[in-house]
Simulated scan of single mutants.
Amino acid sequence: MSRYTITVTSEGRSDPDAVIGFDPPLRTFFLQAFPDQAGDDLALWLGTRDREFETLDALHAAARAKGYDFIPLPKDAATQLADDRAKEVDRPPHDGPLAAFLRHLQSE
Rank of each mutant, 00 (worst) to 15 (best):
residue 93 P to I: 11
residue 37 Q to V: 13
residue 60 H to N: 10
residue 11 E to L: 08
residue 37 Q to M: 08
residue 55 T to K: 10
residue 105 L to F: 08
residue 94 H to E: 14
residue 83 D to K: 02
residue 11 E to P: 04
residue 21 G to H: 01
residue 14 S to C: 09
residue 38 A to V: 07
residue 89 V to K: 01
residue 66 K to Y: 10
residue 95 D to V: 14
residue 45 W to M: 00
residue 99 A to T: 11
residue 10 S to M: 05
residue 84 D to Y: 01
residue 7 T to W: 03
residue 62 A to P: 03
residue 95 D to R: 15
residue 5 T to A: 09
residue 87 K to A: 01
residue 65 A to C: 05
residue 59 L to I: 11
residue 102 L to N: 04
residue 76 D to W: 10
residue 107 S to T: 11
residue 27 R to H: 10
residue 66 K to P: 04
residue 49 R to Y: 08
residue 82 A to N: 11
residue 20 I to A: 01
residue 26 L to G: 09
residue 79 T to K: 13
residue 30 F to A: 00
residue 83 D to S: 05
residue 67 G to E: 09
residue 77 A to W: 03
residue 94 H to A: 14
residue 91 R to D: 03
residue 91 R to W: 03
residue 72 P to D: 15
residue 49 R to A: 13
residue 86 A to F: 00
residue 67 G to I: 12
residue 9 T to P: 04
residue 23 D to W: 13
residue 55 T to V: 14
residue 75 K to L: 13
residue 91 R to M: 05
residue 87 K to E: 03
residue 56 L to P: 05
residue 105 L to M: 14
residue 3 R to Y: 09
residue 96 G to T: 12
residue 7 T to F: 02
residue 100 A to N: 13
residue 96 G to V: 13
residue 45 W to T: 02
residue 40 D to Q: 08
residue 50 D to I: 07
residue 27 R to Y: 04
residue 73 L to H: 00
residue 2 S to Q: 06
residue 79 T to Q: 08
residue 40 D to Y: 05
residue 1 M to Q: 07
residue 39 G to V: 02
residue 91 R to P: 02
residue 81 L to D: 01
residue 105 L to Q: 13
residue 89 V to L: 11
residue 101 F to K: 13
residue 66 K to M: 11
residue 14 S to R: 13
residue 11 E to K: 15
residue 24 P to I: 00
residue 17 D to Y: 12
residue 61 A to F: 07
residue 97 P to K: 12
residue 102 L to H: 03
residue 51 R to V: 06
residue 30 F to E: 00
residue 56 L to D: 06
residue 13 R to K: 14
residue 26 L to Q: 14
residue 4 Y to S: 06
residue 11 E to Q: 15
residue 49 R to Q: 15
residue 59 L to H: 04
residue 42 L to R: 14
residue 67 G to A: 05
residue 15 D to G: 06
residue 1 M to R: 08
residue 24 P to T: 07
residue 78 A to M: 09
residue 105 L to N: 09
residue 50 D to C: 07
residue 14 S to H: 10
residue 14 S to Q: 15
residue 70 F to K: 05
residue 37 Q to W: 06
residue 90 D to L: 11
residue 43 A to K: 08
residue 13 R to G: 06
residue 108 E to T: 09
residue 70 F to T: 03
residue 71 I to G: 05
residue 31 L to W: 01
residue 49 R to V: 08
residue 59 L to P: 03
residue 41 D to T: 12
residue 43 A to M: 10
residue 97 P to H: 09
residue 54 E to H: 02
residue 71 I to V: 14
residue 32 Q to W: 08
residue 26 L to F: 14
residue 33 A to R: 02
residue 51 R to F: 03
residue 33 A to H: 01
